[in-house]
Simulated assay, not measured.
Amino acid sequence: MITPEYNEWWVRKINDNIPKISQENGQSIEEHLQVIPSELKIIRQDFERRNTDLKKKIE
């Protein structure tokens, strides 16, 4: 049988593991959850930039 004290401790323990958004930085939830560009997207952008630079050198 679970005692009320144990149950209260368990609820607090679970809630302590939930990260809380700091009010100090002032970011909205949408900004906080913004997706970081994938590595493939970054590599592709770098490739396109280098490709453009090489085309300019050839001309």
Rank of each mutant, 00 (worst) to 15 (best):
W10R: 10
I58R: 15
E24M: 02
I43H: 06
Q23K: 03
R50M: 09
E30N: 03
Q45F: 12
G26D: 01
E5C: 12
D46M: 13
Q23T: 00
N7K: 13
L54G: 10
I2Y: 07
Q45H: 13
Q23P: 04
N17I: 02
E39Q: 11
W9I: 06
L33M: 03
N25T: 02
S22Q: 01
N25D: 02
E31L: 02
Q27R: 00
N17A: 04
E59T: 12
D16W: 11
E59G: 06
R49F: 12
K56T: 12
W9G: 03
P19H: 09
R49Y: 08
G26Y: 00
V35K: 07
E8K: 15
I58E: 07
L40V: 11
I21H: 08
L40F: 08
E39R: 13
Q27H: 00
T3P: 04
N15L: 13
S22P: 01
E59W: 10
E8A: 15
K57T: 09
S22F: 05
N17E: 04
K55W: 12
N7C: 10
E30M: 04
N51W: 15
K55S: 13
W9N: 09
N7M: 13
W10F: 14
E31N: 02
S22G: 00
N51Y: 15
H32S: 06
E24V: 02
N17T: 02
V35N: 00
E48N: 08
E31I: 01
F47H: 08
E5I: 09
Q23N: 01
I29R: 05
I29L: 02
P19G: 04
E8Q: 15
P37A: 02
K13T: 05
S38V: 09
S38E: 08
I42P: 00
T52K: 14
P4R: 11
S22T: 03
K56F: 09
E8T: 12
Q34D: 12
I58T: 11
M1E: 11
I29T: 05
V35M: 05
H32A: 09
I18P: 02
S38Q: 07
N51F: 15
I29M: 06
L54C: 10
E39W: 14
Q34V: 10
K56C: 01
L33W: 04
K55P: 05
E39S: 11
R12I: 05
R12K: 14
R44C: 13
V11D: 07
K13I: 02
M1Q: 10
R44G: 15
D16K: 07
L33C: 03
V35T: 04
K57E: 14
R44V: 15
P4Q: 12
I42A: 08
I43T: 09
Q23E: 03
L54P: 00
I29H: 02
R50Q: 14
E59K: 13
I58Q: 12
L33D: 00
I18A: 05
N7W: 14
G26H: 03
P37G: 05
I21F: 13
E39N: 11
P4K: 12
V35W: 10
Y6V: 10
N25W: 06
D46H: 15
Q23M: 04
R50H: 12
R12M: 09
